[in-house]
């Protein structure tokens, strides 16, 4: 699924990273401005840039969680997100997108399998129960957690937790996978492993992958890399950009 952005602007009086709960400067107003961006279907992209440069905000805009103040076009595949009502946005998110977060966002009270199947609990899916179960087994097999299907997620290492989160994102074969600092909390060996895994899996289901990272070591093999500092401007005292 390709991504097509024209003249997108989003400004906020707080921190761009507020959604991540890791704000560097809570009260700093900021503005994100993307004049043009094109990502082709099935390709793998990375967004880099310093912390607080608006990468996460960008992801959230693409995911339809946030809405830009002005935008000529924000098109994902054939759908123009900019004009979509919130209910459809939610369905779009549930059925076409896979989301991977830096802090995994697994539910502690569910076990590995239940966490992976969580998206099917939140909205209807076109797959049957047996298909879904098979898919879970397949994914767990791919990420090497087949024998931990019934483990509580709290008993897993961080790397394992992220692998579970990736399985959850890929469960419904999304056409676009958005990963926000997927390796941010991991040790160096896990980092590469997780990144490779993500790219392999996305290739297998031919989905477009967009990774936000500030770890340049992970950029190898990406089809394109965008530096986000180009789009970001911090409002300094009295100085407008």
């Amino acid at each position: 699924m390709e991504i097509h952005i024209r003249n997108l602007e989003f400004s906020f009086s707080g921190s761009p990273s507020a959604g991540k709960r890791e704000a560097i400067s809570e009260s700093t107003p900021f503005r994100l401005s993307i004049p043009k961006m094109e990502l082709t279907s099935g390709s793998h992209h990375a967004w880099v840039g310093p912390s607080g440069s608006g990468k996460t905000t960008g992801l959230r805009l693409i995911a339809g969680i946030l809405q830009p103040q002005t935008c000529d076009s924000l098109r994902i595949g054939s759908q123009e997100l900019n004009q979509m009502p919130s209910r459809e946005l939610r369905l779009f998110r549930a059925q076409r997108l896979g989301l991977v977060f830096q802090d995994f966002k697994l539910l502690e009270y569910l076990n590995v399998e239940e966490n992976i199947l969580l998206p099917t609990r939140l909205s209807k899916s076109k797959y049957s129960v047996s298909e879904l179960r098979e898919r879970v087994v397949h994914l767990l097999d791919r990420v090497g957690l087949k024998n931990k299907k019934h483990r509580p997620v709290t008993q897993l290492s961080q790397g394992e937790q992220q692998r579970v989160a990736i399985c959850r994102a890929l469960l419904l074969r999304p056409q676009l996978v958005l990963a926000d600092e997927p390796t941010g909390n991991l040790d160096p060996t896990s980092k590469t492993r997780i990144m490779n895994l993500l790219r392999q899996e996305c290739s297998e289901i031919k989905s477009t992958l967009l990774v936000v990272t500030h770890d340049h070591a992970l950029l190898e093999g990406m089809d394109s890399v965008t530096d986000f500092s180009d789009f970001y401007a911090q409002r300094q005292e009295g100085k407008s950009i």
């Binding site: 906020f12 707080g14 507020a18 959604g19 969680i65 946030l66 809405q67």
Partner: peptide, 8 residues
Amino acid sequence: MKSKNTFS
């Protein structure tokens, strides 16, 4: 941010 207090 708009989403922050969706449930409040």
